[in-house]
Design a protein around this nucleic acid. Structure first.
Length: 552
RNA sequence: GGCCUGUUGGUGAAGCGGUUAACACAUUGCCCUCUCAAGGCAACAUUCAUGGGUUCAAGUCCCAUACAGGUCACCA
């Protein structure tokens, strides 16, 4: 029996030979230096912040080099794949403006000439290459059962040996063809393992564009390449796909580093030119003293939805990720405050090579705050409505009822060189402006209560606001005039109109302009801290000012 | 336990043999036309995990130790 006949018996029904597949995936026609990258997730559920980082990096490096970034779905683990997992990934990434040149575009459709881009649809391809390995006597059928495997592992652990199927533990390695076929005919289940040519005592140099050159032992483990369900393992499938799809750079989390010898070996055994590898450190979290990777099960902030639900703009999340990926990005952004991330040139060498980057929430919020401060009033209005539509129906209705008025409110100290920075996220907005709307003011004023500071005597408060409205208030005043009047009011009532004077001789006065303004401010808004009082008075208008004063 | 990687302030980090050890966030203090927000100024690592070595000179090179993270599946 020839090797070819034997391979046919082990893996029957393969439609094409590997040579045919090679022809079906011709070299890509791309300019010199263009990278082909891929984002290759498993469709196991919601989008993790790490997935966002990973896909972002894949896309940026491809695009800035004039290359291609494709999406490939690694669903070889049937048990973990979930319903609609693919469209979930596509849709979430799309909402962050991450789209792909090739790959699935929905659960059932895809684009690009190097597909299919879903691994379970490529089973025939992997089997063709596995057949080739069998023919070349580089792979074999293994009958080791789960129990036997467990036993071997236990034994190895007990005797402190390396764990895995290698050397004398690879006991089906030298089974004759006849024995193998005989056992198959008896109905025994089998899998395909490679016949690893490596030795643990041989060191190989592996190169990584972030970590540099590392020395690691060769892989000597007879890795599984085809599982008993006929589906390949991740390692085998991804090496073949990266080759056929002509991937130039594999960018992934550094948890993959230890698989490098394996991947390099697979490439060699199959005669492929290995892509370049880029391993970056994943986002971590300090969990009561222990630092670990952000976990989607344990950490709510690992899900990007955690931030979008809080109203952190997606752009801010991307800006944060960009600073994590290349720390010099922050300085660049400082120089180009309105710059687009896509204009920044990312560098592999600037990717942190440490063993993890702590996820820094205050930093994210700071970036977010700065981002929101740079938006126009219209943008803030639209985005706040967008947010409120999902999370705050009451506020949404108010905003839609008073569009122009709302925009005026959002424009207080905005659209200028050094804009006001008081919203970290869109969920902050309502808490800062509710008192500007009568409906909300009526509803919440008692709940929050009037926060008088300094001057708390009821009669004195009445005195201040009555004097102000009767003698000094004039809608037509500009800001300087307005403030001079506040000063006059202060003088009249025995408060220092000049802060310096007051600080030097506090005993000469009942208080200062600050106290007078605070009384007016609190009487109108209940809050002792608000944006500019002049703007608030201006927007509230005479009628409302009077009404609110009358409530006191 | 084996194999990899890493260790610079509260955090993220720059640094690539000679610098006062950048910068950003956070914190604290002061200043600033009414409170906030912002802004300005300042403070915050006598020291780069520890111990050796190389060198005129070391965070930067070498060795050892400690600690941390990753990984050792018919999961990706």
């Amino acid at each position: 029996m020839t090797n070819k006949e034997y391979a046919d018996l082990l893996l029957p029904g393969v439609k094409h030979t590997w040579e045919e597949y090679e022809k079906m995936y011709p070299e890509r026609d791309l300019p010199e230096g263009a990278m082909v990258t891929r984002y290759a997730p498993s469709p196991t559920g919601f989008v993790h912040i790490g997935a966002l980082e990973s896909s972002f990096l894949d896309k940026r490096f491809a695009k800035q080099s004039g290359g291609i970034c494709y999406l490939r779905i690694e669903d070889t683990d049937q048990e973990r794949s979930i319903e609609n997992g693919i469209s979930q990934i596509i849709d979430s990434l799309k909402s962050f403006n991450i789209t792909f040149d090739e790959g699935p575009i929905s659960e059932t459709e895809e684009k690009g000439n190097y597909g299919p881009y879903i691994q379970t649809k490529r089973a025939d391809i992997y089997r063709a290459y596995a057949k080739r390995l069998i023919e070349e006597d580089k792979a074999y059928a293994s009958f080791l059962s789960k129990e036997e495997l467990d036993e071997i592992r236990e034994q190895q652990m007990k005797s402190k040996q390396r764990i895995g199927i290698y050397g004398r533990y690879a006991k089906d390695r030298n089974l004759s063809k006849e024995e193998v076929l005989d056992r198959i005919n008896k109905g025994e289940k089998f899998i395909i393992r490679i016949k690893s040519p490596g030795s643990f005592f041989n060191k190989i140099k592996v190169n990584d564009l972030v970590k540099g050159t590392m020395e690691m032992p060769e892989n000597d483990i007879d890795e599984v390449i085809i599982k008993s369900d006929g589906i390949p393992t991740y390692h085998f499938a991804s090496v073949i796909d990266d080759h056929l799809m002509h991937t130039t750079h594999v960018i992934r989390g550094d948890e993959w580093i230890s698989s490098l010898p394996k991947h390099i070996q697979f490439n060699e055994m199959l005669g492929f030119k290995a892509p370049k590898y880029v391993h970056y450190a994943p986002l971590t979290k300090n969990d009561n003293g222990t630092i670990r990777k952000l976990s989607k099960r344990k950490d709510p902030e690992a899900a990007v939805s955690y931030f979008t639900e809080a109203g952190v703009p997606k752009e801010a999340i991307m800006l944060y990720l960009a600073t994590v990926c290349n720390s010099n990005f922050e300085g660049w952004l400082d120089q180009n405050p309105n710059g687009n991330i896509d204009d920044f040139k990312f560098d592999f060498k600037k990717i942190p090579s440490s063993s993890g980057t702590l996820f820094d929430l205050p930093k994210l919020y700071n970036i977010s705050k700065n981002f929101i401060s740079r938006l126009t009033k219209d943008e803030v209005y639209d985005r706040t409505i967008e947010y409120a539509t999902k999370y705050d129906e009451e506020f949404k209705e108010i905003l839609e009822k008073y569009p122009d008025y709302s925009k005026d409110i959002f424009n207080i100290e905005r659209e200028q060189k050094k804009p006001r920075k008081d919203y970290e996220k869109f969920s902050d907005v309502k808490g800062q402006v509710w008192y500007m709307y009568d409906e909300l003011f009526d509803k919440y004023k008692d709940e929050y209560g009037y926060d008088y500071q300094g001057v708390t005597d009821k009669e004195e408060i009445k005195n201040i606001i009555n004097t102000y409205i009767d003698k000094y208030y004039d809608v037509k005043d500009d800001k300087d005039t307005w403030f001079n009047k506040i000063k006059d009011l202060s003088d009249e009532l025995g408060y220092a109109s000049n802060m310096k004077d007051y600080k030097e001789n506090p005993d000469n006065y009942k208080g200062s302009v600050a106290d007078v303004s605070t009384v007016i401010r609190v009487s109108l808004t209940t809050r002792s801290q608000t944006p500019d009082l002049y703007d608030i008075l201006r927007l509230l208008g005479k009628e409302r000012i009077k009404e609110r004063f009358n409530l006191i």
